[in-house]
Write a protein that binds this DNA or RNA. Sequence first.
DNA 1: TATGAATGAGTCTTCATTCAT
DNA 2: GATGAATGAAGACTCATTCAT
Lengths: 179, 179, 179, 179
Amino acid sequence: MEDIAAMAGVGKGTIYEYFRSKDDIFREAHKQFHKEIDKMVEEIIERDCSPDEKLRMIVKESLNLFQKRNSGTSIISAKELTGIIMQFWSEGVREDSDKLIDPMRLKNIYRKYRKILSDILDDGIKQGIFRKTDTRLSASVIVAILDGIPLQRIIEPRVFSGGKISEVIFENIMTGIKA
Amino acid sequence: MEDIAAMAGVGKGTIYEYFRSKDDIFREAHKQFHKEIDKMVEEIIERDCSPDEKLRMIVKESLNLFQKRNSGTSIISAKELTGIIMQFWSEGVREDSDKLIDPMRLKNIYRKYRKILSDILDDGIKQGIFRKTDTRLSASVIVAILDGIPLQRIIEPRVFSGGKISEVIFENIMTGIKA
Amino acid sequence: MEDIAAMAGVGKGTIYEYFRSKDDIFREAHKQFHKEIDKMVEEIIERDCSPDEKLRMIVKESLNLFQKRNSGTSIISAKELTGIIMQFWSEGVREDSDKLIDPMRLKNIYRKYRKILSDILDDGIKQGIFRKTDTRLSASVIVAILDGIPLQRIIEPRVFSGGKISEVIFENIMTGIKA
Amino acid sequence: MEDIAAMAGVGKGTIYEYFRSKDDIFREAHKQFHKEIDKMVEEIIERDCSPDEKLRMIVKESLNLFQKRNSGTSIISAKELTGIIMQFWSEGVREDSDKLIDPMRLKNIYRKYRKILSDILDDGIKQGIFRKTDTRLSASVIVAILDGIPLQRIIEPRVFSGGKISEVIFENIMTGIKA
DNA sequence: TATGAATGAGTCTTCATTCAT
DNA sequence: GATGAATGAAGACTCATTCAT
C-alpha cells in the first residue's frame, strides 16, 4: 500500500478514502482493464466492415492492449501488466472462501468475449467467408490464443518482434496449418 | 506453511527437512509439473506415427494434464492446479530482485515446447501433410491455445464438457476457420 | 520484541519504525551506553585539575555509570544493565559471519579509553606525580578493573557497599599492595 | 545442538544420553571451566613459596587459562572461550525466572577466589611483604584485573603480545603507579 | 480531506527436544 | 546405547489497516 501510495503521489491513508481495501484496488484494476478491452472491442464490432476484417482488428488490438503500456504516461511496464493479469486469472480461479475476484465476474467476462467472437464467426459463416464449425468452441480457441500469446511474448519478446505477429496469428486462425 | 504441513500430514517443521523455504517448495512444484509434461511429450514424439497424429496426441494429453488431478490420490483439484500454474507464470514474469522462478527457466521451457512443436510441423511440411507456414510462430499459437484453454475450462467447465474438446481444438488448429 | 514493545509502552510493529531489526536495537543501545561514558570522561579530562584527581574522578564515575540506573525513570536495573554490557562484550568478540557488533567498533572504543588514561598517566609522570611505568599497559589494567569490578558488584553487592569502594580501588591503583 | 553433536562426533540424540538439556551442557561447561581454574589455583597455593610468588603464579596462570586453548587438541579458540565465559557472566547475572546459572554458584565461586587471594595477601602482610590494606577489596581488584584483561586481549591481542604481560600486571598490582 | 505514525494479526523460519528404530 | 527424522513452541518481522491530527 505504501508503494501504491508513493506511485500515486499521495499519502498511505488517502488511498482508503477512495478504496475500501487493497483487494478493492485489485478488483477495481481488474474492472478497469476489462473496461478498456470492452471499449476497444465495441468500437471494432460497430465498424462497418467484414467479419474477417473485424476479427483481424480484434486480434491486433488485443495484443496491443498488453503492450502499449510502454507509453510515457504509464507507470507500469507490459511485463508488469501481464503479471498482474495472470494474478487476476489466478485469483479468479481460487476456491478460497475469501475470493478476491467474484468467479461469476470472470465467467461473464469470458462469456461475453466468446459471444462477441462467435457472433462474428456466425456472421462470417452466413456470408460464406468462414466454413461451418462449432463457432462457440472456435471462439474459445481464439480467446485462448489472445490470452496465451502475451505470456509467451513477455517471456521471450524477440520471437514476436516485428509488427506482423498479429497478422500471422490471424492467418493461422484463418487457414489452419493443414496442407 | 501450517496448511501445507497439515495437508501433508506432517508437522510444520518437518517440511524444512525436505525444502529450504516456502519459495523452494514453489520452485520444486514448478519443476515437478514440467517434468510430467516433459515425460508425456517425449513419450509421444518417440512414437512411430505421423506428425499430425503426434500433434493430436499432444493436444489431447496436454489438456488432460490440467484435468486428471481429480484422481483419488491427488490432494489438489484441477481448479487449484490451474491457479497454481498461473501463479507460476505470474511469478516467472516478475521483475523483482528476488525472483521466485528463474526467468531463464521459463524461457527454456517455452523454447523447448515450441521447438518440439515446430519440429513436428516442419516434419509435416516435408511430408506434405501441413502447408508451409512460419512454423515457429505456428508452434507459439499452439502453445498459446494449450495454455489458454485450461483457464477457460476452469472458469466454465460446461462449455468444454464432452470428451471431444481436444478433437475440436485439434481440428481448429488443422484447418483454420476459413471457408 | 514483544517484551521490549510492552516495556516501551508501544505496539510490536512500532519498534520497527525506529529500528531496522532487533540487532539494530542492540547496536544502538551499545552506542548509547558508550556515548554516556564518553560524555562523562570528556567532562572530566577537560577539568582544570591534577592528573591523579582526574584519575580518581574517572574511577568514581565509571563505577557510578553501572549503578545509577536505579533512578526512578529508568526501566532497567543495574543488574540488567551489567548483563547487557556483558552481552555487548560477548557479541563483540564473536567470530561469526553475522557479527552483531563490529569488532572494529569495540577495538576503537577500548583504544580510546586506553589512550585517555595513558595520556593522564603520561601527564602525571611528567609532573612527577606518577612513577615511570609502561603507561599503555597500566591504562589497560585500570580499564580491566573498571570492567571487572561491576561484575563482582552485581554478583555480591554487599562486599562493595559503602560509598568509598571507588576510593579504595583508586588507592589500590595508586599505591599497589607492596609494603 | 546439531553443531555440538557434530563437533563431538556423535548423533544429535546421543547428547541427551549425557545431558538433560542444552542449558545443562552450558552449566556443565561452566563447572568444568572453574574446575580447571580451581585445580590450577590449588596447585599453586600448596606450593612452598612466598605469598608474592604465589600471587605472581596465579596471575600468570590465570591469563594462560584463557589463552592456551590454541593447543592442537582443543576445538575452540581463545576468542571463542572468552566469548563463552562472558556469556557465563552474562547469564549468571540475569534475573529471569529460568536462571541458566544459579546465582549462588557464581557468588560462591567469586567468594572462593577472593578468599584465596585475600588469604595470600593476609599472609604477605603478616610476613611484612605486603602493606596493610583492606585485603578483601584488594583481592576483588586483582580478580577484576584477571577478568578484565582477557577481554581486552581478545579485542586487541597485539597490545598484550610478548610473554611478559603477566609480569607487568603483577608489578602494577604490587607497586601501583604512584611515584 | 489528507496524512503517516501506530498497530497487531499473521507468516515464515529456527531449533531444542522427543522417540521409534 | 546411539541415532536422526519429526515436531511445534517461540520468535523476528511484515504489512494492510486505523485514526488522531
